[in-house]
Structures are given as structure tokens and as C-alpha cells.
Write a protein that binds this DNA or RNA. Structure first.
Lengths: 237, 237
DNA sequence: CTTTCCTATACAACTATACATATCTTATCA
DNA sequence: TGATAAGATATGTATAGTTGTATAGGAAAG
């Protein structure tokens, strides 16, 4: 494979070869690459050398590894515009991706002091907590938790249990239109649970969006926090 | 230095997540948890990994499995180990929960007879009283009141106003290390104020811990009383 | 000599799949 | 109404495959 004039390391040559396969479109997004053992056999090298090459592609964001499963072609980051009307589904559909929302938990409880302050209610007032996972093309994009004031929206819990769409649920609950009153963004590190749900590594940076939506009358109807996988989403203002 | 990117195994993260659901009261005793397959789907992992995590909860006695039927809640509280070194934050972090502390009041006053006896000072000697609220994952866990002898620790009040960590404040005040000399536990009924802070009903049972911490030389440096929400915390010795 | 690259081995962690076994649900029949 | 059987559902067990990590060592270049 190598002649005397070839001074590029084997691991780099392997990275280039696999990157070339990806560029040629031999694999689609989500496809599984040959196993490390198979690649090592094909190139006639040790598995560690293959791993070194693949690690380059991981750094570049081209592929993603899943222990026990294999190496998979990663998706390209999605642009996600933010304005005063933010609708997750519509944004992703506009970007040509297939959105999906998975409910993780839906329950009613008492608001904490901070939550009460955000929703302009009294601490201890009942709220509806909607915890879920957002995906695009089957790949997890964000985890979110939305809080709704139950005293203003008594039927929101049952509405959410019927439709996963927040917009529709608010409509059922009597809110025909709402606008984003504020959005705050920070970068945080993924907790173990968040990392698990988003299929990233613990400690990886997440983009945390804290937002407040209000009805036409100006009363807060939703206090939402969303943690985006930083390497799969780019928020644009 | 502080960059400790601890890697939590997936099975442990799942155990922590489910334990958190139990502690938050999302399931009642006897309720059936989601099936292993459902949990595996939710977290995007293999069923075996979920089983590993659940086996931890079985060991802890929180859940019980019935072949062919499902996994059922056996108990709901959070474990909270107590030794001769008790650090609220570290215990909760070790349990996979997100601890938080809110200061409610910080002032200096004269010690009562009982407090003076506990701190081995003279009645009427000045003490620093630190009143606060401890939370885990946003849920109030306990209210506490810590007393510090001002004649031994003149700078403790200003130290506590800068950091919410008792350990750090004692360090600023010159106490590098301290150990728990005694712990006494009783069950009491929640007063109206305590019930409001802990988001329980007035009269609900609380676990009252009365503890004394001493410095390396053996002199008392803190006399603390903590009222735990009994349905959210179980102290293990 | 030290560093880098690569090989070699072993084990841990997680996945994938299949099948066994216990329980629950539902349809059916007397 | 009640009993029974069949099918669906859920946990228990087994086996093999794949990536992650640790350790050790040889070969070549600076």
C-alpha cells in the first residue's frame, strides 16, 4: 500500500479513503459503515489504526459512533430560525426535514418559585409539565420541558395528551394565537440524562433556550426550556 | 483542574433518571413503570441496558419486577446517606440529582439556652443564624437552620453571604475540615411555614435532623437543624 | 534517548437477536 | 355468568457481535 515516497500516516490515509466514500455518496445519512474489524481487515492494518482514522471523521462531524452498534453517517446541522413566532415543526418542515415529537412525561404539579415567577403566577399554583424529545429524520435534536399555568389553562393537560402539538393544544385550551415574549440563550453542558436522550456525550455543550410565550392579551401561557444538541442545530436570529 | 468530565455509564444514567421520576412522585407505590421495551425506546438504548439500570433500583428496593407483568414501584423516597461527614450537595450529586440551596435569612443574634448548650458557649453569646431551603432537581427537599458561634468564627456571616456552601464558608472562616459529632433524628409535623416552603400540607410528617459539627480540635463549629420532606427523602445509616 | 506510529492482546460496555417463561387480555363457548 | 383457551404482552436468559479502553511492545524518525 505504501511506497517509500508516501509519508502520510496510515491512519490519515484511512480517514481520507472513508471521507472519499462519504463524498461519493456511497453511504446515506444514517447508514452504518463497515465495522472497525472489517475495515482493519480490508486495509490490512490493526483495528486501532482504523479507530484513529475514524476518530478524525468523528471530530469533523461526518460520522458518529455508537458503542456496540457501529459507526454511522451523521446528518448535517440544521439551521433553525428564531423569530417572535417560533414553531418547531414548521421550521423543520421548511428545512425539508421530517420532524417528530416524543412525549416523555406529562403531569400536573405545583410550580416552584422560579417557575411561578416566569409564568407570573403564585408559587405552588398548579402547572402542567410537558417533558419531551424532539427529533428530525429520526435523530434527536432537543429535549424540552414546557410549563403551562393550569389556573389559566385548565384543559391543557388533556389537550396535550391528545395532540403532541403545543400550538394545537393551546388552541383547544382556548388560546388561538400566541407570540414569543422573550427568549434567552445560554450554553450548558449536557447532564447524563440529557446526553442519553440526545445521543451525545455527557458534558457536551448544549444550547439552552429559555422562552416565554404569551397570549394576545399578554398573559404568559407557556414557559419553555429547550436543550438543543449543539452540533446538530444552529439557531439563527 | 476542575474539568472533571465524569462519564456516567448509560445504565447508571437510566437508573438515576427513573429514580428521579420516582422521587418526584411521578409514580405512586404499586404503579407499573413503563415496560423495559418502552424505556429502551425512550432512551434510545438496548433493553439489556435498561434492565441493568432497573436492576440497580431493584437492589435499592425501590422497584420490584414481576415476570410477564412488569416493573412495579415498591417505594418512592430518595436515599440520602448519612455518615460522620455529611455534605448535602455531594450526597445528592452522587445520587445523580441536581442539588440547589436557597438562602432565606442570614443574621446575627444571641444564642438561646438550648443553642448555647449545643454549641458549648454561654447563653447570650452571639451566633450567626443561617436559614435556608435545599432542593434537588428543583423540588424542595428540606429547610434548615445552621447556627455558628461568632466568638469562634467572627467572619462566618460575611463568608456565608458570599457562598451558599457551608463547607466553603467554614473554610473562609478558618475551618479547613470538620466532622459530624452527633446526629439525632425525630419525626415532627410540618408547621405552616415549613409546609409552604416544602410544598407539602400543613401537619405532614417531617424528618427532623439535629446535628453538631466540630472542627479538628473538637470545638463545635456548627449546630444545624434540618427538616426533610418525609415523602421525598429517606435517610440511610 | 525520546517521540510517534503501528501492532497485539485482553477486557469492559453496549447492541442485536432469538427464544423461554410468566402474566394479562380477550374472545369464545357452555 | 363463568370457565377455558388462545393470543398478545412482558420479563428472564442465552449467545454473538461491535465499539471503548487499557496495557504492552516493536520499529522508525528526530
Amino acid at each position: 500500500m505504501r511506497d517509500s515516497s508516501d509519508k502520510t500516516p496510515i491512519w490519515k490515509a484511512i480517514a481520507n479513503a472513508v471521507r472519499g466514500d462519504l463524498a461519493e455518496g456511497r453511504y446515506a445519512v444514517g447508514d452504518k459503515l463497515p465495522t472497525e474489524a472489517a475495515l482493519a481487515d480490508r486495509f490490512g492494518v490493526n483495528r486501532h489504526t482504523v479507530r484513529h482514522g475514524i476518530s478524525v471523521l468523528v471530530e469533523e462531524g461526518l460520522v458518529r459512533t455508537r458503542r456496540g452498534a457501529g459507526v454511522f453517517v451523521a446528518a448535517t446541522p440544521t439551521d433553525y430560525p428564531i423569530g417572535n413566532r417560533v414553531r418547531f415543526h414548521e421550521n423543520l418542515i421548511a428545512a425539508g426535514r421530517r420532524p417528530e415529537k416524543r412525549m416523555l412525561a406529562l403531569d400536573e404539579r405545583a410550580a416552584t418559585i422560579g417557575e411561578a415567577q416566569a409564568l407570573q403566577i403564585e408559587a405552588g399554583d398548579p402547572v402542567c409539565a410537558y417533558h419531551g424529545l424532539s427529533l428530525a429524520d429520526g435523530q434527536p435534536i432537543a429535549v424540552f420541558e414546557s410549563l403551562f399555568p393550569l389556573l389559566r389553562l385548565p384543559r391543557i393537560t388533556s389537550a396535550l395528551s391528545e395532540t403532541s402539538s403545543v400550538t394545537q393544544a393551546l388552541g383547544i385550551a382556548g388560546i388561538d394565537d400566541y407570540t414569543r415574549a422573550s427568549t434567552r440563550l445560554t450554553a450548558v453542558r449536557a447532564t447524563a440524562t440529557q446526553a442519553l436522550l440526545l445521543q451525545v456525550s455527557e458534558g457536551d455543550p448544549l444550547l439552552r433556550s429559555s422562552s416565554m410565550n404569551q397570549c394576545a392579551a399578554g398573559a404568559p401561557v407557556e414557559y419553555g426550556r429547550t436543550w438543543f444538541a449543539g452540533d446538530r442545530i444552529t439557531l439563527t436570529l
